[in-house]
Design a protein around this nucleic acid. Sequence first.
DNA 1: ACAAAAGTGTTGGCTGTACACCCATGC
DNA 2: GCATGGGTGTACAGCCAACACTTTTGT
Lengths: 231, 231
Amino acid sequence: MQRKDYYAGNDKMYVATDCIVFGYSTDCLQLLIFPRKVEPHKGEWSLIGSFVKEDEHVRDAAERVLKEITGLDKVFFEQLKTYGDVDRDPGARCISVAQYALIRLGETDRKLVEGHGAYWYKLEDLPSLVLDHDELVRDALNELRRKARYQPIGFELLPEKFTLPQLINLYEVIYQKKLDPRNFRKKILSLKVLTKLDEKDKSTSKKGAYLYKFNREKYHQLLESGYHFEL
Amino acid sequence: MQRKDYYAGNDKMYVATDCIVFGYSTDCLQLLIFPRKVEPHKGEWSLIGSFVKEDEHVRDAAERVLKEITGLDKVFFEQLKTYGDVDRDPGARCISVAQYALIRLGETDRKLVEGHGAYWYKLEDLPSLVLDHDELVRDALNELRRKARYQPIGFELLPEKFTLPQLINLYEVIYQKKLDPRNFRKKILSLKVLTKLDEKDKSTSKKGAYLYKFNREKYHQLLESGYHFEL
DNA sequence: ACAAAAGTGTTGGCTGTACACCCATGC
DNA sequence: GCATGGGTGTACAGCCAACACTTTTGT
């Protein structure tokens, strides 16, 4: 189904969407990258991404890529910004709508990821990436830090059930500094968006730590009542 | 100069950039709109915008449009986000990179603006706009409010020299609520990013209000020293 | 019984907020 | 001299940051 083109005569260009995919596991943030499959720069490390198709929402293109590479269906992701430099891609004029995604590392089908030649790299020993992708990663990391401060997006990086020590560790990794566990607990619990479960996770200590769940409902109530966070 | 196209076979599309242009004058925020010049929906109210050219940075395209319509060269603007819905534009598949701009209303060459058939509308009596532009305006307004809280972008909307009562009024207009002038002064002056001048503006009172200038240098020092705002 | 991680409370300082009066000037 | 908007200070409350010990349990 071809619709009428009212804009003939103006320039068209390729539109890509690239995903900065963060994963978390104890003590470090990781990033999903893979060797680029097309020329130019074929084989060099790249973010995962794809061209957006004529009949495809930009967001859907990102979703498609994420599903393809991670096997996951409901990955959390948000638009970062659009990179529109004329020369950003030597392959052709191509703008890229960058998206950053947050993934619970445990759930990921590592086989599938590796089947696509993708790999998780610790942020601190990330190789340099193709095109302007290093810049996208820098920007995404800033955005993640900024955003984590006033929206509990950190939960997207943790499994459904998690312990407070895990949550603290996650925030320590994101902010790159030690947090005081007493103050952190007080603050996060005072928001009343966590539900304490009756189970303990004993994998990291003899005593065991209580598991919690993030309560999206209460979180949305809180937001709608005009509350302004600050972690 | 045509460069090699490595990506032939993938879809190309139109890329537009649309600007949400805010202006401020006492007691109200205004928005710059104009009657759309091309079919479809020719003649209906639209944000100002343009297609991005093959050899043009997306940001440059926005700059071009802003200059064309306002006559101003160094308008403050930032990317908002990209709208990528397949059906957002009935004229053809076209994604739009939205930018929001802030303008000192006094400086604008109103003749030039009107020569291009553009008009300033008060936000509260804005007509409904073409395509998804109502949504862009909503999003831009949210972003403006969010951003004004922790970055002094408000200054972009005021003339070079301004009084504190003016600044307070601006923030009242942005946040849509009354602020306490004592507390506002205390807070803003404690940031030490304003330079008090030896002149007074007597246009609004017999006593006259001292004029201030925004000190970009000190502001950047403050930022680099890792300070986190909150107005 | 001891090692290792989980969990818990108090205090002091700072920051935000609420609130009411005097000041300078043009008419 | 009075009306108009501009400018100033204080007191209270709530929040954040700093800080050290007890609890649980597997070995």
